[in-house]
Design a protein around this nucleic acid. Structure first.
Lengths: 141, 141, 141, 141
DNA sequence: GTGGTCTAGACCACC
DNA sequence: GTGGTCTAGACCACG
């Protein structure tokens, strides 16, 4: 968890952090009361700017998902689980919907799309990592 | 085609235009030698700035998809069809893959994802438009 | 390097910038990983508009020669050296070839052309500056 | 003479025509009193717009090189020969000079440049045509 | 403080 | 009437 961000992604670094925390809470990997990595530690581990992590944590606090206590750290708040599950799902629904619409506009059939989705589901990958070649190659023919 | 852009999307307006042209070429809606709408006309139609359209067309020319002839207009180049099909498909594959990975991280099962994809496929929407509520609501339970 | 552009040249300002960067990379003056001047700084130094420099840098990124990182700056990419050397050389070859063909069409002999080339080689000039009078006068007799 | 223009060149079509006429006069191919091809005939032959040819002839008249007589055609004026020779030479000198400066900026030595010039001189090509591959390949190593 | 995006408008080159 | 170039300035995203 929070082991990797993609500096080249079009998704801002701070947003990648926010998403990963939300996903971790939604999936139960992070539970109520758990302590998040400190800003400095995470910045070092991901090799990114201190302020970028700080912004992500600030945003998460504004969303009501974590609470920060000066000198002690940041903790998952009560109620965050349900909220994260809802946000994550609606986010995923939106991204899937958009991708499918683009597929249709590009002339892909339902069969192609389903095939891609199944292959993607069967493939594990780092979050925000590169798309595996076996996925890319599925349509190259 | 090229009838609508979403000014509120996080995707830049010029990029939306580029994508729509690429999709139109990929799906055969625009064919080799076809003339694109003039910069001025498209800017008027979409109610956006002249230079924004000009940038999109310039980018498409750099990509080798269209050729522009001062005083005459912009035309789909030979070979653009295959290139667009490849680009569109690999783009869609990447976006689907990422969305599926996020779904897994958020704790969604294959059944949920497939359900979303099927519903998305059955729903028509303007490009870059909002996500329909029937999709959003699918997982709210 | 990047100390001067010619606003009166028929070559667009942004293209002059692109060429100068390419030449600087080709000749080793700019090396892999080197940071380019910031958009704002260069615009100030050359006394041209911010967006003109931004366009040049964006083009160079599209060509795969530099990578830009928001908030950090633009840097020479790996592999840019060979690419720039190839592009620069083929560009120079083309321009020399065209100039020589024109010389032949205008009735100049090999002796005249060689004389011009030697004189040009011996003369230093700002990039895109005016042609020195000693060159112009060589054939006025 | 005036058998070919390059629609893809960065040099405007009308300017290519003007240059070719000037070169033809400078080299003695067109003599004082000779009749130029009619606007319509030339536009047909080169497959370009009527107005483009008309603009070129108008420019040449303004320069004092030709005189036009309604209903009869355009003719090379007295004194055009010397004027064209001077203009052509200074034009060629400028283009050679610029190309050589670019070569120096790109890190080419005098030996390379001279080699290119000699090869270019030995190669015949249509005006404004593509650069022959034997020239392009000279530096690819 | 860095670059990105968009708008607005002027002027030019070309057909 | 077509696209090209440049300027000027505003606002945003990012680190």
């Amino acid at each position: 968890m929070l082991s990797r961000i993609n500096i080249d992604s079009s998704i801002p670094v701070y947003e990648q952090i926010e998403n990963q925390v939300q996903f971790a809470i939604a999936s139960g990997e992070l539970k109520i009361g758990d302590k998040l990595p400190s800003v400095k530690e995470l910045a070092d581990r991901l090799d990114i700017n201190f302020n970028t992590v700080a912004k992500a944590y600030r945003d998460l606090e504004v969303m009501g998902l974590i609470s920060t206590h000066r000198g002690r750290g940041c903790f998952v708040k009560k109620g965050a689980e349900k909220q994260c599950r809802d946000m994550s799902r609606s986010r995923v629904a939106a991204r899937l919907f958009e991708a499918v619409q683009e597929g249709k506009a590009a002339g892909l059939g339902k069969k192609n799309v389903t095939e891609l989705v199944n292959a993607s589901f069967a493939t594990d990958a780092e979050p925000y990592g590169d798309v595996p070649s076996e996925i890319k190659n599925l349509l190259k023919r």
